[in-house]
Nucleic acid binder design. Sequence first.
DNA 1: TTCCATGATTTGTCCTAGACAACCCTACGT
DNA 2: ACGTAGGGTTGTCTAGGACAAATCATGGAA
Lengths: 306, 306
Amino acid sequence: MDESELAGKGLAISTVERETGLAKDTLRVWEKRYGFPAPDRDANGERVYSRDQVEKLILIKRLIDRGTRPAKLVRLSMEELLARTDPGVGAADDPPQLVEILQLVKTHSAVELRKRLEQALLEQGLEEFLRATAAPLSPIVGDAWMRGEIEVFEEHLYTETLQILLRSAIAAHSRPDGAPRVLLTTFPGEQHILGLLMAECMLWIHGATCVPLGPQTPVREIVLAAETQRIDVVGLSFSPAYPGQTAIDTLAALRAMLPAGTEVWAGGSNPALFRRRIDGVLPVREVSAISDAVVNWRASQPRHVD
Amino acid sequence: MDESELAGKGLAISTVERETGLAKDTLRVWEKRYGFPAPDRDANGERVYSRDQVEKLILIKRLIDRGTRPAKLVRLSMEELLARTDPGVGAADDPPQLVEILQLVKTHSAVELRKRLEQALLEQGLEEFLRATAAPLSPIVGDAWMRGEIEVFEEHLYTETLQILLRSAIAAHSRPDGAPRVLLTTFPGEQHILGLLMAECMLWIHGATCVPLGPQTPVREIVLAAETQRIDVVGLSFSPAYPGQTAIDTLAALRAMLPAGTEVWAGGSNPALFRRRIDGVLPVREVSAISDAVVNWRASQPRHVD
DNA sequence: TTCCATGATTTGTCCTAGACAACCCTACGT
DNA sequence: ACGTAGGGTTGTCTAGGACAAATCATGGAA
């Protein structure tokens, strides 16, 4: 049924689906239309993908998530694809402080990385750390990975380190119980929680109450939770990999099922959130915009100004 | 393409796949073979699943994960399925302390739940808390959900609360740097990290060094990380929902790619891990078995006994 | 020029129908 | 009691086709 990758023989289509995020149907239809990927076949006529093809597919997927169309990418060579990875934010433009941290990720110095991030947090304070370090770092690390400068496990190491740091920053102090009460989660299929965690920090700073539900809560359950937990705002996070149309549709469905008094805030680096306005949903472009959102929310409340 | 669930019209097959964990192919072939699920069709002839069918599918999936075969389940009615949810560990058998906590989950009292867990942690100490509270609670909560006694969001709330508690228990103190150095992660497709976190706590107690990579690291990346981080033991966790055969195959592949000196420990409530022994992989049945594993590892090391 | 509406193309997902290998279980024979 | 052979079960794969929604490109009006 599934042999994953026994001794470098190649990968089955289901493994490729998991590792790239491209559906089996998509992989097959690309093969027919564009001639890529062109996997070998095993004795049963089943597709066997090489490691190289999978790496190229992952790269293509990331470029598509960023907004390029498949037809312009799938036929390109690896070199041509890499030439497109420069996101306009070249390494030269980045603040030297961030480049320094990226360097630690590249050399997978887990302990040093942790120390450096802790130090930055202490120097800058949580809010500035989020704005100037944590938030801009994620796309930089992502781009570095695309250019092959860091490995996947190094990205994992970075994510995990940052997560531990942010969590302990919140947990160390008592939790506020001010308004608004914000439920934080993602839709099913969206696994990235770093954005959620940064939002939680920002909300915590501004005295809002957070009810974190972890990732992947179905819409109906979000509505149930919002009712029983007396939620004022539902906060969702969307990474670039999340299908934009699904995000918009599901947000609309959530909006419709939620009481009118409950707001919906959507953040993350997914471009679909900001292409067109979604009725009854507040797009949050940056972590720093969360503080404005909180202030505005409080101002809009009839008499509950504290 | 995807309409998720606009105004209760029903769910598309891709949504059902995400929410149940059953592949589209599986859903279609069950329909042909067993006559269930039997979704309506929209104007384009595409399947439209009702909320009821999806709930039944989720229940069936959990029962299958526990070891029952589909043919014996798929034709059953909802009542007959529910009759099978009693896992032999009836609520009556459970320690009153755990039942009490379950009660807090049922009433979604987030704050109370947090306090109660914190109190248990203080009373019992971390090791006993893991053994007597955290570890046995997860299946109890899962079963309560199957019987419809708690909602999905309540399960999320519980998981998140416990996670925060365990993370802060570790983060509050300095990290040990003793041997063995253990890399902790899951394979792609396995998202549950509670097991990983409990393992991390246990290892931390016993002075081992943990290198958490978060969930879903591809095998090749695990090997890379193990080499660069001078890892002695790779620890993997498997929930019941993870396909057993894939677990075994991928563990074997990992074992083959890893240096002989690096051990592989596999834990979690997935039954496949314990059905038959896997060459070169140490199965860890309970969190408490981790301490033995550490002791044995240290004894097996030539001269590094500290 | 800028803006909007229309038509063409691209693209992901869905459909049917069939095939097969690997697994589980049973029953038989040693 | 133990192991092995056969038969049923099950998930995943194949192919080729279809279509709606999204995007892009074109042309006309302000």
